[in-house]
Simulated assay, not measured.
Amino acid sequence: MKVEEDVPAETKQGWITRLQNKIKLVWQIELDFPTSIFNFQSALVMVLLSVLVMSALGVIYSSHYSRQLFHELKLEKQYRDDLETEWGQLLLEQSALSAHTRVEQAAEDYLDMSLPDSKDIKLVFSNGR
């Protein structure tokens, strides 16, 4: 309380007046803010900002799409590798099933076939040979 008594009334009044003037200045700026904000520069900034946001969204979309395609590529390569493995196994199975000894054994077992004796084999020539 003693501090207030030592300060002259004129200084208090000047300080209060300065504060009131600053408040009025701030309020005038805020009241003028909506009308003075729309000009060519602010429109340009808004257009550039919207272009920037659209560009960022495009980058996000393209990177997401790229990741999706890469994932699909990995799945297709895995599928190709599985098919190649199965193809190799089928080739091995085919070669095992078509081996001469297996065919001969199946003919003997299931069809009661046998190799003829050499005396029963006759050669047939065509065109006079």
Rank of each mutant, 00 (worst) to 15 (best):
D120P: 02
P8I: 10
D120E: 14
A99V: 03
D117M: 10
Q28K: 15
V124C: 05
K22P: 00
G128K: 02
A43P: 01
W87T: 15
K77F: 01
E93V: 08
R102E: 06
H71P: 01
L83M: 06
L57K: 01
Q20K: 15
F38L: 03
D117N: 14
S62Q: 13
Q20L: 10
L91T: 08
P34G: 03
Q28N: 15
N21I: 13
L31N: 12
Y110H: 10
I16D: 07
G58V: 02
G14Y: 07
W87L: 14
E4I: 06
R129Q: 14
L44Y: 06
L19A: 10
V103T: 02
L57F: 06
S66T: 15
W27V: 15
K12Q: 07
N127G: 13
N127A: 11
D120Y: 01
A56D: 01
I37R: 04
S66A: 15
L73K: 12
A96W: 05
L123E: 13
L31S: 11
L123C: 11
K122I: 05
E93M: 04
L19W: 06
T101A: 07
Q28R: 15
I60Q: 00
A99T: 06
Q89I: 07
E104V: 05
K2H: 04
T35Q: 11
N127E: 10
A99M: 06
Q13S: 14
I16N: 04
Q89V: 04
Y79R: 14
Y65K: 15
Q20T: 13
K119C: 01
M54K: 03
S126Y: 13
S118Q: 09
L44D: 12
S114G: 12
L90H: 07
I37F: 04
E5D: 11
G128V: 02
V124Y: 01
E5N: 10
D117I: 09
D120C: 06
E93Q: 14
I29A: 12
L19I: 08
I23K: 08
V103D: 02
K2S: 08
